[in-house]
Every structure is written in C-alpha cells, then in structure tokens.
Amino acid sequence: MRRILALGLLLCAPAAFAVERDFGDLVRALSDELHCRPTRIPFFGLVNLVAFVAEPAGAKHLDLAIFEHPNIDVRAEHRLLQTVQRAVGRGWSPFVTVRSRRSGQFELVMVYMRREGRDCRLLVTSIQRDEAVVVELKLNPDGLERWIADPELSARSVHGDSTN
C-alpha cells in the first residue's frame, strides 16, 4: 500500500512542480525584463488559507506577484509579450490577450489556461505602465464560468482585483 502511495506521489509530483515552476519562471523572467523584484506581500499564506476554505469568486488557490513602479515604456510591448510567451510552459493554452493603448495609457493582459483534474488553472499577466501583476489561480467550475462568460472583462478585472 505504501509503495502504491509513494508511486502515486512520485507520478503526481512532476505535474504539480511544473505548475509551480511556470509561475516562478514567469515572475523571474519579468523581474529580469523590468529590472525590479516583486513586492513582498506579508501574510500572503493566509489568503490561500481563506481561498481554500471559502473559495471566493471560485478561486481555490492563488499565487500573486506585484511589481510596483517598473516604469514601463509603451514601446516595450512586443518585447514583454514575447518574454511572457517564452516563460509560459507548453502545458498552458493561450486563452485571452488584451492590448490597450487608450488615452496614452498602456495595458497588456495575457491569460493562459490549463486543466488540472476537475479544476482548471489560469495564469494571468497584467502589465500597465506603473505596475505589473502576475496571478495564478486555481478555479472551481463557478470561477471558470465567470471567466468563460466574459473573458475580456475578467482578464481586465484581475489587475483591479489584485491591487485594490
């Protein structure tokens, strides 16, 4: 029985590690590109404890990295797009991309999705001139339904939800 359990753990570990690695890889790649480190968020573990119990907006788990005041040049849009595309692993499917330059403002949102058992994971990168956010969400069916109903609005709301 123990051997079966150990084998099961061994088989599941690479998949779990791959998901973690993608978030970490993306954060590291953006750190290098933006020349700044993500802001440390105290007690962030508590957020996941709440998410695990209450599943707010369908989110069961959350990883978050916020880069403050990176002072991004609008002309860097293509480079940032490529940086994110390179950093995101093959297991993720591109879902939504929003690029906006309205009224001189700059916004780039990229959302990737992958299935994980009965749930699904979203990897969201939202970059504005003075702030960049990377979020990885594990969603239950309710959370996914909201994203499917309006991918563009959901993608845009990530920046506001995570930083306000």
């Binding site: 879902f95 991309t97 309205r102």
Partner: peptide, 8 residues
Amino acid sequence: ASEVVDVT
C-alpha cells in the same frame, strides 16, 4: 489599434 482583444 488602440485596443486589441484576442480570444482563443
């Protein structure tokens, strides 16, 4: 474009 949305 001032805004591009790409859903796949």
